[in-house]
C-alpha cells in the first residue's frame, strides 16, 4: 500500500496551522507573480489609452491641448487640491512600473535558470513580439525616464515652457534624435502590448478556447491603435502639420 502516505498527506493538509497571507502566497508563486504583472500591465495599458487620446488634442491647436493640460491639474477639485489627482495617478503608475519590472526581473531569472543548456539544433521560436518582451520592456523603462525628463520636468526640452505642452512638443520633435527615440519606443510599445494584452488575459484566467481569437485580435487592435496614435504626433511635427 504505497499510496497510503500520500493520501494521508492530502487529507491532513488543511494548512490551518500556518497559513501565509494571500498576497505573500501570490508573490511567492510563479503563477501569482505573473498575475501581479498582468494587473500592473493592464493598469499601465489603460493609462496609455487615455494618454494617447489626450495627445491627439495637439491637432486641435495650442489652446486646446494647453487647456487640456491645465484641466488635468484640476480634476477632483474642490474635493482634491490642485494637481492632487495628477500626483495620485503618478504614484499609482510608479507602483505599477516598479511591480511590473521587479516581477519581470525575478521571473526572467527563474526562467533562464530553468533552461540552463541550449539545444544544439536551434530553430526560430515564437513570434517577434513574444521574443522581445524582456528587452522591449527594458527599452520602455529607459524611454519612460527620457520622456519624463523631456516633457514632464522639461529638463532636456529645448523650449521648456511650463504649462505649455504644445510648444514643448513641437520643440522636442524638432530634434531628430528625439524623434528617433520616440518612434523606437512607440514601436516597442506596440510589440509589448501585442503579446502583453493577450498574455495578461491568459495569466488572469480570462482566456478559453472560444475567446482566444477575439483576445488576440483585441491585442493586435490595441497595439496598432496605440502605436499609430502616439506616432501621429512626431510625424505631424516632422511633416509640418503641427508647428
Amino acid at each position: 500500500m504505497t499510496t497510503v502516505p500520500t493520501v494521508d498527506a492530502m487529507t491532513t493538509a488543511s494548512r490551518t496551522a500556518r497559513h501565509p497571507s494571500t498576497l505573500a502566497t501570490l508573490w511567492r508563486s510563479t503563477v501569482g507573480k505573473k498575475a501581479v504583472m498582468a494587473v500592473s500591465g493592464l493598469a499601465m495599458l489603460l493609462y496609455l489609452v487615455a494618454h494617447m487620446l489626450g495627445n491627439l488634442k495637439v491637432f486641435f491647436g495650442p489652446d486646446d491641448i494647453n487647456g487640456y493640460a491645465a484641466w488635468l491639474r484640476t480634476i477632483g477639485q474642490p474635493f482634491l487640491g490642485h494637481e492632487w489627482f495628477l500626483w495620485i495617478a503618478r504614484v499609482g503608475l510608479l507602483a505599477a512600473v516598479v511591480l511590473h519590472g521587479v516581477a519581470a526581473f525575478q521571473l526572467s531569472r527563474r526562467d533562464l535558470a530553468a533552461r540552463p543548456s541550449k539545444y544544439a539544433h536551434q530553430r526560430r521560436r515564437a513570434s517577434y513580439a513574444t521574443r522581445t518582451m524582456r528587452w522591449g520592456g527594458v527599452i520602455l523603462a529607459l524611454f519612460i525616464v527620457w520622456h519624463i525628463l523631456d516633457l514632464t520636468t522639461l529638463t532636456v526640452n529645448p523650449a521648456a515652457e511650463h504649462g505649455r505642452p504644445y510648444q514643448n512638443i513641437v520643440a522636442s520633435f524638432g530634434n531628430w534624435y528625439s524623434c528617433v527615440i520616440y518612434i523606437v519606443a512607440m514601436l516597442a510599445v506596440g510589440l509589448h502590448v501585442r503579446h502583453g494584452f493577450w498574455s495578461a488575459a491568459q495569466t488572469l484566467g480570462a482566456n478559453n478556447a472560444r475567446r482566444d481569437r477575439l483576445l488576440k485580435l483585441t491585442a493586435n487592435g490595441l497595439a496598432l491603435l496605440l502605436t499609430a496614435g502616439f506616432l501621429s504626433v512626431p510625424v505631424a511635427v516632422m511633416t509640418g502639420v503641427v508647428k
Partner: peptide, 25 residues
C-alpha cells in the same frame, strides 16, 4: 520556469493539450 505564453508547449504536445488549459489553471 514560469509561463511566458510562447505557446511552444501546446504546439509540441503529442496529445493536443490546448494552450487555454494554462489559463484555466
Amino acid at each position: 520556469g514560469g509561463c511566458t505564453n510562447t505557446g511552444e508547449c501546446a504546439t509540441a504536445c503529442p496529445k493536443g493539450i490546448p494552450l487555454p488549459s494554462i489559463a484555466a489553471m
